[in-house]
Design a protein around this nucleic acid. Structure first.
Length: 514
RNA sequence: GCGGGAGUAGCUCAGCUGGUAGAGCGACAGCCUUCCAAGCUGUAGGUCGCGAGUUCGAACCUCGUCUCCCGCUCCA
């Protein structure tokens, strides 16, 4: 089964490239790992996804407004957000086994071993003393146990100091002093401890000397937080309100794989919703429901979604869940919904010295709002669409076709206009229709090859409707309109065409259901 | 980074024990066709990932190197 799913992802990747959705980055130079370019069809689909999200979030909610913050931000932003500290991992390699470990994890494992020894002592003692055994007292008094405990405490102390002072050499010395061996090779032959920062840094300022190091944002959210006051004041926003943003973010993943699922450069669609402290759980539930509802509207199949509630919460959250999608690799995170408390705004208050508060006239007092975040990976959403849309099917006549069943509202091309034959004035008539439709819809024209072949070509890129001009068109101004998914054709008057197409491909009909 | 696999036309691949590159599909031009791919004719497209070595001669053998894919290690 895993094999089959692998094949599905491979097929999707191949199809996406073959039909101009996604190309490997810099392909003529052998490509760049985990970077991809969106081709002529990909960019249309991506724009449509953005637009559907933006309309659902901003246009449909009078208390949500948009923002487009800079990717470059003041370096202190990332200190405040916790990324400079939490996004750093001290890594160490074993020279013999060539395995890489997190230095702090190695030390913690060592501590766990000592704790194991304590537990053994306790077990032994419990047997010895029987019912009269008092664990607390034993732990507090037994000499051997106390020895172990003080060992643990001193290791913890040294590790904490080393990490906090960024002293990687100390960390290595600690590993050596403890005699920690690689669990794989048993070797104690370690490299120096190195810091891996998952944020991309670059130089601001063209003169190397005067340049200062800044980061490419690892999430778009901070651009929203630092603009909280600007937007709240200039937009006269009242709590609760939200700020939405679509933009690129960058993370230096150690491995970035699985096509566009995990890239180092990716695009997020985030909305931070500011609420009164105490109301956050209610709003958390509200956005969980609203967001899953949005996904289901998109029409990729309700059975392909599920929630995954987080048990281990990040440093800033008091509740968090993922909306997972059934990708070829299995159910994986597509969107995250987090209750971020007042962590971010408070942190920015502390680092900036500015008050990031809202004056609540009802309560007659100011407070730092709590935040509910909805954050969806646009590229992952794109992959979800490809996954759900990619279909290989056998038709009733026994022939096979590959069709992208992309929901009409987000399909790259809405209508293909096709003259049945490339003669008898049919192309001219078709062009007339095309010129009319293209004012409002993304259209394409094709007169090459047999009509059946042209239908299949449109199926492959997910064009939901094909309008075919035949000889009857010249007599009574009717055309056939073909449905991509069920292959049904209907003959309608050209004058009805615009309204009909508009109805079929409109985002409006989706938005109405929100 | 380690281990494994793979790089030949746009795609899928063939190419024998070394003799100087092919097929199908696709694309393009045209013919034929009044409605669901695979009818006909023609055209374009490859320094066989890159570099070196062995050889009279390398897509093929040797070494190096790069890239991609899969697995492992990390991930707010």
């Amino acid at each position: 089964m895993a094999n089959q799913d692998d094949n599905l992802l491979k097929k999707i990747i191949a199809h996406a490239k073959e039909y101009g959705f996604i190309f490997p980055s810099s392909e003529i130079y052998d490509g760049l790992a985990a970077a991809y370019d969106y081709g002529q069809n990909g960019v249309e689909l991506k724009n449509n996804l953005k637009s559907f999200w933006w309309k659902a979030m901003v246009q449909m909610n009078e208390n949500i407004v948009g923002l487009d913050a800079s990717i470059f931000m003041h370096p202190t932003t990332w200190k405040a957000s916790g990324h400079v500290d939490a996004f750093n991992d001290p890594m160490v390699d074993n020279k013999d086994s060539k395995k890489r470990y997190r230095a702090d994890v190695l030390i913690e494992d060592h501590i766990a071993k000592i704790e194991g020894k304590i537990n053994k002592e306790v077990d032994k003692a419990a047997k010895r003393f029987g019912d009269s055994f008092d664990k607390e007292q034993y732990l507090a008094t037994n000499g051997r146990v106390l020895g172990y405990q003080s060992e643990i405490d001193s290791i913890n102390e040294r590790m904490k100091n080393a990490i906090e002072s960024d002293n990687l050499a100390d960390l290595k010395t600690l590993i050596e002093d403890l005699g920690i061996a690689d669990p794989v090779s048993g070797s104690k032959n370690w490299t120096d401890v190195r810091q891996f920062n998952l944020m991309f840094s670059t130089e601001l300022g063209s003169v190397a000397d005067g340049a200062s190091k800044i980061y490419l944002r690892p999430e778009t959210a901070q651009g929203i937080f630092v603009n909280f006051l600007n937007v709240q004041k200039t937009g006269r926003m009242k709590i609760p309100f939200g700020i939405a943003q679509i933009g690129k973010a960058f993370r230096n993943e150690i491995i970035a794989r699985q096509f566009i699922f995990r890239m180092r450069e990716f695009e997020q669609m985030e909305m931070q919703f500011f609420v009164k402290p105490g109301d956050e759980m209610q709003w958390y539930e509200h956005w969980k429901n609203t967001r899953i509802g949005w996904h289901k509207l998109l029409g990729l199949g309700e059975e392909n979604y599920r929630f995954h509630d987080h048990l281990n919460l990040a440093h800033y959250a008091n509740a968090a869940c993922d909306i997972e999608f059934n990708f070829p690799m299995g159910f994986k995170e597509l969107e995250g919904i987090h209750s971020r408390t007042d962590f971010d705004l408070k942190a920015h208050e502390e680092h900036s010295g500015k008050k990031l508060q809202f004056f609540d006239p009802q309560e007659n007092k100011s407070y730092v709002p709590y935040v509910i975040e909805t954050s969806i990976g646009l590229d992952r959403l794109f992959l979800a669409v490809l996954t759900a849309a990619f279909t290989e099917e056998t038709l009733t006549d026994g022939s096979e076709r590959t069709v992208m069943k992309i929901p009409a509202a987000i399909a790259p091309t809405k209508v293909a206009v096709l003259p049945l034959l490339k003669k008898d004035g049919l192309p001219e008539k078709a062009r007339e229709i095309l010129d009319e439709l293209k004012l409002d819809f993304n259209c394409t024209y094709d007169e090459k090859d047999a009509i059946g072949k042209r239908y299949r070509r449109q199926d492959a890129v997910g064009t939901p409707y094909c309008v075919t001009v035949d000889h009857q068109t010249l007599e009574d101004n009717t055309v056939t309109i073909r449905d991509r998914d069920n292959l049904q054709q209907e003959r309608i008057n050209i004058s009805e065409l615009h309204a009909r197409v508009s109805d079929l491909v409109s985002v409006t009909s989706l938005l109405k259901k929100i």
